[in-house]
Measured scan of single mutants.
Amino acid sequence: NQESVVAAVLIPINTALTVGMMTTRVVSPTGIPAEDIPRLISMQVNQVVPMGTTLMPDMVKGYAP
């Protein structure tokens, strides 16, 4: 099972992602793959992401799977 990126904290809208904001977990449905965390650093979320929420591609500005 592939791990997906999950919010480790509440991430406010338009916040640039940092390593500490993200964790990984096997979830269903799957979100952004864990191995993409290095690509996500400094990208901004386009909505509020509650802690424990799986990051989906459409939540991150400029992210393309």
Rank of each mutant, 00 (worst) to 15 (best):
N1H: 03
N1G: 07
N1L: 03
Q2T: 12
Q2H: 10
Q2L: 15
Q2N: 15
Q2A: 13
E3V: 04
E3N: 03
E3M: 05
E3D: 10
E3A: 05
E3G: 03
S4H: 02
S4I: 02
S4F: 04
S4D: 00
V5L: 07
V5A: 13
V5K: 00
V5C: 03
V5Y: 01
V5I: 12
V6E: 04
V6H: 03
V6R: 02
A7K: 00
A8F: 06
A8Y: 07
A8E: 07
A8S: 11
A8P: 01
A8W: 03
A8Q: 09
V9L: 08
V9D: 06
L10S: 12
L10H: 09
L10V: 12
L10G: 13
I11N: 00
I11F: 01
I11A: 00
P12C: 04
P12D: 11
P12K: 10
P12R: 08
P12Q: 13
P12V: 04
I13D: 14
I13T: 07
I13Y: 06
I13G: 12
N14R: 14
N14T: 13
N14E: 08
N14K: 15
T15V: 14
T15L: 13
T15C: 03
T15I: 08
T15Q: 07
T15F: 08
T15W: 05
T15R: 07
A16S: 07
A16V: 12
A16E: 12
A16W: 08
A16I: 12
L17H: 00
L17Y: 00
L17R: 01
T18L: 10
T18Y: 05
V19K: 12
V19T: 12
G20W: 12
G20A: 15
G20R: 07
M21D: 05
M21E: 03
M21T: 05
M22W: 02
M22F: 13
M22P: 01
M22A: 02
M22T: 03
M22D: 02
T23N: 11
T23L: 06
T23A: 06
T23P: 02
T23F: 13
T23C: 03
T24P: 07
R25V: 11
R25Y: 07
R25Q: 12
V26R: 02
V26F: 05
V26A: 12
V26P: 08
V26I: 07
V27T: 13
V27Y: 03
V27N: 06
S28T: 11
S28M: 13
S28F: 09
S28W: 03
P29H: 05
T30Q: 13
T30D: 08
G31K: 02
G31W: 02
G31Y: 02
I32T: 02
I32C: 03
I32H: 01
P33M: 09
P33A: 08
A34K: 10
A34Q: 09
A34M: 06
A34S: 08
E35Y: 05
E35D: 10
E35A: 06
D36M: 15
D36K: 12
D36C: 04
D36V: 11
D36I: 07
D36L: 14
I37W: 05
I37D: 00
I37A: 12
I37Y: 11
I37M: 07
I37F: 09
P38K: 12
P38E: 10
R39H: 15
I41H: 06
I41G: 05
I41C: 04
I41Y: 09
I41K: 08
I41L: 15
S42V: 05
S42M: 13
S42I: 03
S42L: 11
S42N: 12
S42W: 14
M43S: 09
M43V: 12
M43W: 07
M43A: 12
M43Q: 09
M43E: 05
Q44E: 13
Q44R: 11
Q44S: 11
Q44K: 09
Q44A: 14
V45R: 00
V45P: 02
N46L: 08
N46E: 09
N46F: 07
N46K: 10
Q47H: 15
Q47M: 13
Q47I: 05
V48R: 15
V48G: 09
V49L: 09
V49Y: 01
V49Q: 01
P50W: 08
P50S: 14
P50N: 14
M51W: 06
M51R: 14
M51C: 04
M51D: 08
M51N: 13
G52L: 12
G52A: 04
G52H: 13
G52D: 13
G52I: 02
G52C: 09
T53R: 06
T53W: 05
T53M: 14
T53K: 11
T54F: 03
L55A: 00
L55I: 15
L55K: 00
L55M: 13
L55Q: 00
M56Y: 09
M56H: 09
M56L: 10
P57Y: 11
P57W: 11
P57Q: 09
P57F: 12
P57C: 06
P57T: 14
D58A: 12
D58S: 15
D58I: 13
D58F: 08
D58K: 12
M59Y: 14
M59A: 10
M59C: 03
M59R: 02
V60N: 01
V60Q: 00
K61L: 08
G62W: 07
G62L: 07
G62M: 06
Y63I: 09
Y63T: 04
Y63V: 04
Y63A: 04
Y63K: 05
A64D: 09
A64N: 10
A64E: 12
A64H: 12
A64W: 05
P65S: 13
P65H: 12
P65D: 06
P65I: 08
P65A: 10
